Simulated scan of single mutants.
Amino acid sequence: MLTKPQTTAPGTQRAGTGGVTLWLTGLPSAGKSTVARAAAKVLAERGHRVEVLDGDEIRAVLGTSGFDRAARDANVRRIGWLAELLARNGVTVLVASIAPYRETREQVRGSHEHAGIPFVEVHVAASVECCVARDVKGLYARQARGEISGVTGIDDPYEPPLAPELRLLTDREHVSRSVETVIRYLTARELV
């Protein structure tokens, strides 16, 4: 006699067996992508299914345009949907996206919670001064020269999380310490 494989009820996951979304939010050049990629490498080496969703890469691939509030919110919701889809299928997803508005991040969290998928908000906290000094993509320099506007944290708002699960002080600690904090958090809560 054939038996059906055991499945988990919709909206629930056993600890450590399902996926999870870690949403790394912060200013441009705060270190979101750096931490996400380094943590993903550690997790992959430990045998976990892992994916990094970089906000800039997603925007380029999907061809989303515009940096007004509506366009930014739409992009965050798209990334959130994709992260939820991957996590629902057992992938640990590390999202590196500015996601400047609390309300939109909370919508993504709510969607995950409704689906029974763990959502971990990680504030990659670096001062504006530090981010300007790093200026990985040259955004701050271009804004200072008047070539562009709407740079998050300078002439466009960034609403930092009020109560993130993790806050990484990337302007004061080495990336390895930030990664260690992420891995320790996931392990302690049996999310990986």
Rank of each mutant, 00 (worst) to 15 (best):
M1F: 00
K4H: 09
K4T: 11
P5I: 13
Q6D: 13
T7F: 11
T8F: 13
A9V: 14
P10N: 06
G11W: 01
T12S: 13
T12M: 10
R14P: 02
A15V: 05
G16Y: 02
G16V: 11
T17Y: 02
T17K: 07
T17A: 00
T21K: 02
W23L: 04
W23K: 00
W23G: 00
L27R: 02
P28K: 01
S29G: 03
S29A: 14
S29M: 06
S29D: 06
G31S: 09
K32C: 00
K32M: 01
T34L: 12
A39P: 02
K41W: 06
K41L: 13
V42Y: 01
L43W: 12
L43H: 03
E45P: 03
G47H: 10
H48K: 13
V50K: 04
D54L: 08
G55D: 00
G55A: 06
I58T: 03
I58H: 05
I58N: 01
A60V: 06
V61C: 08
V61A: 13
V61E: 10
L62G: 09
F67A: 05
D68F: 09
R69Q: 15
A70F: 07
A70Q: 14
A71H: 11
R72L: 09
R72K: 04
R72M: 06
A74T: 14
V76D: 01
G80A: 11
L82Y: 08
L82V: 12
L82H: 07
A83I: 09
E84C: 13
L85W: 12
L85G: 00
L86W: 07
R88A: 15
T92V: 05
V93R: 01
L94M: 02
A96P: 04
A99Q: 10
A99S: 15
A99T: 15
P100F: 11
R102V: 10
E103Q: 14
E103T: 14
T104R: 00
E106K: 03
Q107G: 11
V108S: 01
H112C: 00
E113C: 07
A115V: 11
I117Q: 08
P118K: 04
P118G: 12
V120P: 01
V120S: 13
E121K: 03
V124N: 03
A125N: 15
S127Y: 10
V128L: 15
E129P: 10
C130E: 11
V132P: 08
V132E: 15
A133T: 13
V136A: 14
G138I: 11
L139E: 00
L139D: 01
Y140S: 00
Y140C: 13
R145D: 09
R145W: 06
R145Q: 14
E147N: 04
E147H: 09
I148A: 03
I148G: 08
S149G: 14
S149D: 05
T152L: 03
T152F: 09
T152D: 04
D155F: 08
E159Q: 06
L162M: 07
E165A: 12
L166V: 07
L168P: 00
L168T: 02
L169P: 05
L169K: 05
T170E: 04
D171K: 05
D171H: 01
E173W: 13
E173Q: 02
S176M: 09
R177V: 13
V179L: 09
R184F: 06
R184G: 00
L186D: 07
A188E: 15
R189L: 03
R189Q: 12
L191F: 04
L191C: 01
